[in-house]
């Protein structure tokens, strides 16, 4: 169900790297709640930067971005990032055990009161992304690039964010793993999670309507 307050609203937003390379130039658009948004565009065009702005890892130069009707700057940064989870393009996985890696968000004060998932649930989640042969005690160091990417995605999901900002979540995956991950992401969207995903794939979700965004030379083109 699409609610009236947009999930994100960009109003006259401009951003440039080091004041020179323009990523966005006075752009205004909105993303509805519960949407499945695909972002495409030329390499270096600013797709990742757009996600970083939504997660407030970068600040806009002019204009404002709102999440659920409230300016991003009015949100407590940790609370915003809890609700609007960003998955980096290159997964960052430590040498600790798979269990410790997955449960890392629960070591932070903002998540301490949440119930940690049990080993059984963690193992089930690993199964959903074709990693059922990976043990929870296995060190992160032995995982392949594709396994790290999937593990990173699961870690991001565990605190139950409302929005998932995914930066090429399947770039290191084979076709079977890619299919599993995209099915998982679709399932989350059907349950109400807003998905904003960068992908170079020709992927289109099967069962949910898609909103397509292209970024090029400072302009955002929205196709609903």
């Amino acid at each position: 169900m699409i609610h009236q307050i947009p999930c994100f609203e960009f109003h006259d937003v401009s951003f440039a790297w080091h004041g020179e390379r323009v990523i966005l130039e006075r752009q205004s658009f909105s993303l509805p709640q519960g949407a499945f948004v695909l972002i495409r565009g030329p390499s270096g065009g600013g797709k990742s930067t757009l996600l970083r702005l939504m997660n407030r890892l970068e600040e806009v130069e002019t204009g404002e971005i709102s999440y659920l009707g409230q300016n991003l700057t009015d949100w407590h940064p940790s609370e915003l990032r809890q609700q609007v989870a960003y998955l980096q393009q290159t997964p960052v996985i430590s040498d600790r055990s798979v269990r410790d890696i997955l449960l890392q968000p629960f070591s932070f004060r903002i998540n301490r009161e949440k119930t940690k998932p049990s080993d059984q649930i963690l193992q089930q989640l690993l199964g959903k992304v074709q990693m059922k042969d990976i043990g929870l005690d296995d060190p992160g160091a032995v995982l392949s690039g594709g396994q790290r990417q999937r593990l990173s995605l699961l870690r991001t999901l565990l605190t139950g964010p409302n929005v998932l900002l995914l930066d090429e979540p399947t770039s290191s995956l084979d076709s079977e793993s890619r299919r599993c991950v995209l099915e998982l992401v679709e399932e989350l969207n059907r349950q109400g999670t807003t998905i904003v995903m960068i992908t170079h794939d020709t992927f289109l979700p099967n069962h949910v309507p898609v909103m397509k965004i292209t970024i090029d030379q400072g302009r955002v083109f929205v196709c609903r």
Binding site: R81, Q82, A85, F108, I110, N111
Partner: peptide
Amino acid sequence: RDLVEMQLCLGAT
């Protein structure tokens, strides 16, 4: 930086 930002994105101070 990537490591620090990953943790910030998971809600870390």
